[in-house]
């Protein structure tokens, strides 16, 4: 028997496999395929204060070994999530969930996190700092260490649950951003969000995505994500949830060897709705193959 249990800020997960925000909605679509209680947990759809329709379509483009999305945080808003989505989730998922929270100002992050912090179903608050800061000239919060520090500090001041900051890779030095989150009091880091990408339709001679650019994800970005998880986990003293192109049990183990305590799976869920189930089922076999008895022994071993 191998041990697949890992612990994030005192929260023990049966396994480190976590569907990433934006690829699992609020769980229901996947519960139709399999019992989602086998998951370590999952990170729900990024939630803002107000309901959001998101960006115009087309929002999706294919790439070699990956995809670009420009969904634009379509979500029902924090109040509908608390009043409708969480009670619905309770019917199909008996574990705590990761609440992925977005915002366009420090005040909005504070408002959303304060509300979600009161929910028993939430185990960790994952703060997505990739949104544009409407009061700061529209530049994403996550690209400026000072902003990341301020958002983290403000959110930590109003919450009791562990707060993980989800970092954007679209920065010059992600280590500096991670350190700012740690200095602001973050309990952990989630990384990486999507890379900014683009495709052009040769027939129309225009970008495929209506918003021109979007978030690039899928196996193509795995080496970039792995490298960043390695750099950050060696520079901070808080746990890192690693993600970016993870598609197999081997990828999970590799990401943990780079320094991740748990691993999120994103785009793979959209191509194969059973991706996380298959990874979880395959994990013990791959651990045995490489002589790993306990996943905790390999975190950051590389």
């Amino acid at each position: 028997m191998v041990n697949t249990k890992v612990t994030l800020s005192g929260w023990e997960l049966d396994n480190p496999v976590i569907p990433a925000s934006g690829t699992f909605n609020f769980g229901k679509e996947f519960a139709d395929f399999y019992d989602i209680n086998i998951l370590g947990t999952f990170s729900f759809k990024g939630t803002t204060k107000e309901p959001k329709f998101g960006n115009p379509t087309p929002r999706i483009a294919e790439t070699p070994m990956g995809m670009i999305n420009s969904v634009g945080l379509q979500n029902p808003g924090i109040h509908a999530v608390i009043e409708h989505e969480l009670p619905e989730l309770k019917k199909i998922f008996n574990k705590k969930v990761i609440a992925n929270i977005s915002g366009y100002s420090v005040e909005e992050y504070v408002y959303n996190c304060q509300l979600i912090d009161k929910e028993d179903q939430v185990g960790i608050i994952e703060v997505n700092v990739s949104c544009p800061n409407v009061h700061g000239g529209g530049m994403a919060f996550g690209t400026d260490p000072k902003n990341v520090y301020e958002v983290t500090k403000a959110v930590k001041a109003v919450t009791t649950k562990p707060v993980y900051i989800k970092l954007s890779p679209n920065v010059t030095d992600i280590v500096e951003i991670a350190k700012a989150a740690e200095a602001g009091g973050a309990d952990g880091i989630s990384m990486i969000n999507t890379l900014l990408g683009m495709r052009i339709d040769l027939k129309t001679k225009k970008p495929i995505i209506a918003n021109k650019m979007g978030g690039f994800s899928g196996p193509a970005i795995f080496p970039v994500a792995l490298r960043m998880v390695y750099q950050v986990s060696h520079a901070v003293n808080i746990p890192v949830i690693g993600m970016g192109g993870v598609s197999s049990a081997e990828d999970v183990i590799e990401m943990m060897m780079a320094g991740a305590t748990a691993v999120q799976v994103g785009a793979a869920n959209l191509v194969n709705p059973y991706a996380c189930k298959e990874i979880i089922e395959d994990l013990p076999r791959v651990m045995e193959k490489y002589g790993i008895k306990d996943l905790n022994d390999i975190i950051g071993i590389a």
Binding site: T23, N25, T57, R59, I60, N69, V71, N269, L270
Partner: peptide, 22 residues
């Protein structure tokens, strides 16, 4: 028709607005 990510409601890639909601 719309460009889709998953095809089963997981990604919100193909949303449209209608008079009866998104």
């Amino acid at each position: 028709e719309e460009r889709m990510g998953c095809g089963f409601g997981g990604c919100m890639g193909c949303s449209c607005k209608t008079l009866t909601g998104n």
